[in-house]
Structures are given as C-alpha cells and as structure tokens.
Design a protein around this nucleic acid. Structure first.
Lengths: 111, 111
DNA sequence: CTTGATATATATCATATATCGTATTTGACA
DNA sequence: TGTCAAATACGATATATGATATATATCAAG
C-alpha cells in the first residue's frame, strides 16, 4: 500500500529505527551524537560540553555503546568515543539540516 | 568548540529536537509518520496499515497533534491526518535514506 | 608494591514518564 | 435511536531518569 520502496523497508525496520531514535530522544544523548559528529571525543570533553552528572553521561555512553551507535577506545586514563556507523552520522546531519539556523519553519503546503 | 554552525544550533535546540525524536522513537508513531509522508491518510487507513488497538493509534495521533507534528481534518465521519511541517518530512526522508534498502552498513572509516 | 590521584564505569533507588489493554465517550449521519 | 469512526479516560505495569554512592582502571610517586 505504500508507494515508495524505501518506505516499505523503513516499515520493516521500524522497530530497529525507532530503537535508534529512542536513544537520540534524550537531550544529552542527542548532544553526545552531535559532539561526536565532529569526531572523536573523550568522556572528559563530553562531560565539559554536556550538562549533568558524570555517572549519567557514562551510563548514556554505555547504552549507546551497547546498541552499537558508538565505539570506545581507551588511551591511558582517558576513553575516547566516536560514532560507530555512518548511518547515525547521516541522521545527525539531517537533523542539523532540518533544524539548523536556516531551516525556516516552512509549513507544509497542502498539495 | 563545535565546528559547524548548524551543529551549534542543533545543540541550542537539543531539547526541542529530542522531543520530536521522542515522538518518533516508538514503532507505531514512526510508522504513522512514514505513512503520512506519502500524503494524507484517514485514521481507518492508518489503522489498517499499523498494528495495535484503535485507541492506541488515536492516542498516538493525539500526541503528535499536540506537538504540532501532524494536523487533522474532519470529513464527515472520517478524520484525515497529514504531516504538519516540512521538517518532519525531511527527517523521515533522511531515515529512509539512511536505513533504506540500499543503505549499506558502511562502517565509519576512521579518519 | 602500596598509596594516591584522576578518569570512567557500574550499582542502587526514588520518582517520573511511557505504554498497553479495556472501557467509555463523542461526533456524524442514516 | 443505532451505528460507525475516532477520541478520551483509567489503571496496571514497565521503562527512563537523575541523584548518590561505590567500584574499577591507569598511572605516578614514594
């Protein structure tokens, strides 16, 4: 019943995709994704950029790690995180494009 | 500390954007958005396309309506919904592009 | 090798928020 | 009134959140 093929596929993957969105549906985790979009960052750096307790940040990173959104790399005392997969990067880019400064509210013109 | 200007803006709007994502972070609501991406649809049509009880669908639509994601139009007995704003459409498109059939898992090449 | 310091992770718990099933209600119309 | 479409109300259960405490890992002194 859905016209475009990508749509069907998205529906088939709705569970998976909604799971990803659930992880991004929290202010701090979204900010984590945004920060990492610019490249690798240590937990300390993220902690500086993002509000909230360190333990919560660590837990958010753990959840994102468990779901395969980010990967961690330890270097001496610090742990560096980066985005694990291009798809997340593309989603973040799309959000930036949609909600960025020049994204005018542009109400949908009824066809 | 963030490089690109859209990024800063997304950070500023993290609360708002994460709220939008929260609405899409549920399988059925994501499917609603996907269906409506193809154009207006009645509640009955959505009910046929999406699993779950009618009351749940109606409640999901209500939430999306309250948050301004969709708008409703009544025509005799039926109520037709459509996406309220292009930004949501663009996000859905991006999800399709990222998770569609030709979206290969393409692991992020570490720079 | 123990001690201390720094960075990160995990555990726990109270509270908030989300979800789902079921029942009831409202709106439009014949 | 009866019926179909959609919305709302309610309550039980689940999941998320934030605060706080504790644990682990790595390194540097001493």
């Amino acid at each position: 019943m859905t016209a475009r093929p990508e749509m069907q596929d998205l529906e088939a993957r709705a569970e998976e995709v909604s799971g990803l969105l659930k992880l991004l549906s929290h202010k701090n985790r979204l900010l984590i994704a945004c920060e990492l979009r610019d490249g690798e960052a240590s937990v300390s750096a993220l902690e500086a950029a993002i509000s909230g307790a360190q333990s919560n940040l660590s837990r958010d990173l753990a959840r994102m790690r468990e779901e395969g959104l980010v990967v961690a790399r330890r270097q001496s005392k610090s742990v560096y995180y980066r985005l694990a997969d291009d798809r997340l990067a593309r989603v973040v880019d799309a959000l930036c494009a949609a909600f960025g400064p020049e994204a005018k509210q542009k109400k949908r013109s009824r066809k």
